[in-house]
């Protein structure tokens, strides 16, 4: 938490350093003789979002208030502890890449990737980063798409290019199939165990994985884009309505201890990997017909009602909290 002020102070420096990936920054900006941005827009914890693709932060206590907008462009972003991860936009001549930054947005590592950015997660400690890209097709609502999901261990430098290389146990038995796709990883607190979606043979299953062992095993069906709660007891996910993705998805919470599932009060179809703002609150993005992304929240216990948290923003992630 002590790094928050420092982080905002150095954003303008980071901006310069990141010029290589900030493709179209400020062509209309006036001469840079203006004072550097040093004022924190509201004190306290902050939430990282994307504002039309620009990495931004808002106050957790006043998310509709002033917004710090950097020049760093991402299609997806996430953060955990002191690590910020960004999947850079696919341009006319450029493929995407994973850019790993520190809390001051200084780039530490870049991994070139192929496909369209779709999901991105950093573990609560900031050590593990997982991404999902569309390789063929563009929608989870159809058949015939393919995804690629990879994991970076920032401590060891190990890169799992594709979870499809892991050993699969399905319904208790070893399983192999060329139609396997993975998406939507979420990490547990030990930075080894993780959850993800496995699609094969017409089923979409929640899997629990073991990074060190290189294994995954199925737990239950019709769970997509899992997100583990900060306390590790629940998974928020999107559940295909009637097990048919063409009908849309209902945000749902699975209690890992009891196996109980609780549909949340959001009844609009949500095609996002939910994020936990805290142990009681789920955040997610919804897009309006004109392409405006808005970040909404809904209580994790199934009660209450959806609330607009941050207009014009998606990819929410709480900054500097253990547990995301």
């Amino acid at each position: 938490m002590t790094s928050l002020r420092a982080r905002l102070v150095v954003i303008s420096l980071a901006t310069v350093l990141l010029a290589g990936i900030a493709l179209t920054y400020a062509v209309l900006a006036p001469a840079a003789d203006a004072p550097a941005s040093t004022a924190l827009a509201g004190a306290g914890p902050r939430v990282q979002v994307l504002t039309n693709g620009l990495l931004s932060t808002v106050s957790r206590a006043d998310p509709g208030g002033p917004r710090e907008v950097t020049a760093v462009r991402c299609d997806r972003a996430h953060t955990g502890a002191a690590t910020v991860a960004c999947l850079t936009p696919v341009g006319a001549l450029t493929a995407t890449s994973l850019v790993v930054m520190d809390a001051a947005l200084r780039p530490l590592k870049e991994i070139p990737l192929t496909g369209f950015p779709n999901r991105l997660r950093v573990s609560a400690s900031g050590r593990m980063i997982a991404w999902t890209l569309f390789i063929d097709g563009h929608s989870y609502a159809t058949n015939g798409f393919s995804t690629q999901t990879g994991i970076l261990d920032t401590r060891t430098g190990r890169i799992v290019r594709s979870l499809e290389d892991f050993t699969i146990t399905r319904d208790g038995r070893p399983y192999r199939n060329a139609d396997v796709n993975f998406w939507g990883v979420t990490f547990a607190g030990d930075d080894n165990r993780f959850y993800a979606t496995l699609s094969t043979g017409g089923r979409r299953s929640l899997v629990e994985g073991d990074m060190a062992a290189g294994t995954v095993r199925t737990l239950r069906d019709n769970v997509e884009c899992p997100s583990l709660s900060p306390d590790g007891t629940r998974i928020a996910y999107k559940s295909a309505i009637g097990a048919d993705p063409a009908k849309g998805w209902r945000l749902t919470v699975l209690h890992l201890g009891s196996g109980r599932t609780v549909p949340l009060a959001e009844t609009r179809s949500v095609d996002d990997q939910p994020a936990w703002l805290d142990d009681q609150t789920i955040a997610y993005g919804l897009q309006t017909g004109d392409g405006t992304n808005n970040t909404w929240t809904v209580p994790a216990d199934g009660g209450g009602a959806p609330t607009l948290l941050i207009p014009g923003a998606n990819s929410p992630a709480v900054i500097g909290r253990d547990g995301a």
């Binding site: 941005s37 040093t38 004022a39 827009a41 931004s56 002033p66």
Partner: peptide
């Protein structure tokens, strides 16, 4: 506002 050059006030 040029005293806080990276800040957006769109929801104010």
């Amino acid at each position: 506002d040029n005293s806080t050059t990276g800040t957006n006030f769109g929801t104010s």
